[in-house]
Design a protein around this nucleic acid. Structure first.
Length: 293
DNA sequence: CGCCCTGTTGGGGA
DNA sequence: ATCCCCAACAGGGC
């Protein structure tokens, strides 16, 4: 479930362990990871370089090497990065689905695990190329100073797509995924199917605050639960109890007690309390006055 | 056992 | 602008 809080948790965990180390060897086991680029070319260009810094932009992890090379990694649905995972069999079994292996100083390893193989790695050269790549894909940082109600309302002007689709669009807001979108909409008491362009400034204020709160709650919980060998399932397991509505169809709303329902919004499973988050009014049909005709 | 459905993301085509 | 489908696999219900 890597959305912004999970990716940031992984980053915080790994950064102090890999920054300042040399990447001695890179083995890309799955050619799909770099497609359409040739994995051998990526291996050759990064082997022997110093890892200067591990950053995050939206849901991307960005490893910056000396010589101004950036390796942009995306975990998608099921990807994760494990530090020094076990190698053996039996109780010390190596994790399955290893797609990329990084060998660092002193035998330290980093393994990109990804059962579903949606994850990607992309090598970019220079800040210019990096910024250009991200600029067309990522919008506002929801934890940054520019993430304001006024900015959101301006971006949504005239937009008829559901507000949930707006939250999920990484080119507008970088880092919110399906689960945190549901949580934020519930906290802000806004129905996911409301057209984004129809929200008032006050509602954008509520939603902005709710997004920040939800992400920070995830950050606080994620940071407390990850360790060297922890899989993303471990992270998810402990925080899942804190989700108010997501995957809780049929359960009582914690606010009002009405059963939470599951519906479809922006093509994703969506959970909502339809008392706390009233449905949008049916699209208003032009009312033709019949008076005095 | 097999079939069908669902899913934490993003890109491309309609 | 918006919607639908797809990538590849695991897990659950029937």
């Amino acid at each position: 479930m890597p959305e912004l809080p999970e990716v940031e948790t992984i980053r915080r965990h790994l950064a102090p362990r890999v920054e300042g180390r040399v990447l001695h060897r890179l083995e890309i086991l799955d050619a799909r990871w770099t497609a359409p680029e040739d994995p051998r070319a990526v291996e050759d260009q990064l082997a022997g370089r110093l890892i200067e810094r591990l950053g995050r932009r939206g849901k991307y992890l960005v490893a910056t090497f000396d010589g101004d090379a950036h390796l942009l990694m995306h975990l998608r649905m099921t990807g994760t990065l494990l530090y020094d995972p076990p190698l053996g069999n039996g109780p010390d079994a190596a994790p399955a689905h290893g797609r990329v292996r990084f060998t660092l100083d002193e035998g330290r390893r980093l393994v990109f695990i990804d059962p579903r193989r949606f994850g990607t790695g992309r090598l970019l050269h220079g800040d210019r190329q990096l910024e250009q790549y991200l600029a067309v894909r990522l919008g506002l940082d929801p934890l940054g100073p520019a993430f304001t109600a006024a900015a959101l309302k301006a971006m949504a002007r005239g937009r008829v797509a559901p507000v949930k689709a707006f939250l999920l669009d990484q080119r507008r807001i970088a880092g919110v995924g399906n689960i945190y979108a549901d949580e934020a909409l519930f906290r802000a008491r806004i129905h996911p199917l409301r057209p984004a362009g129809r929200l008032s400034l006050g509602q954008w204020r509520d939603l902005r605050d709710a997004v920040v709160e939800a992400l920070e709650a995830g950050l606080a919980a994620g940071g407390a639960t990850i360790d060297d060998y922890r899989t993303p399932e471990g992270v998810q397991g402990s925080f899942q109890n804190e989700f108010l509505v997501h995957t809780r169809a049929g359960e009582a709303c914690p606010e009002c007690g009405r059963a939470i329902v599951k519906l479809r919004a922006a093509g994703r499973g969506t959970y909502v309390c339809e008392r706390c988050q009233p449905r949008p009014r049916a699209p208003r049909r032009p009312v033709v006055s019949t008076w005095g005709s």
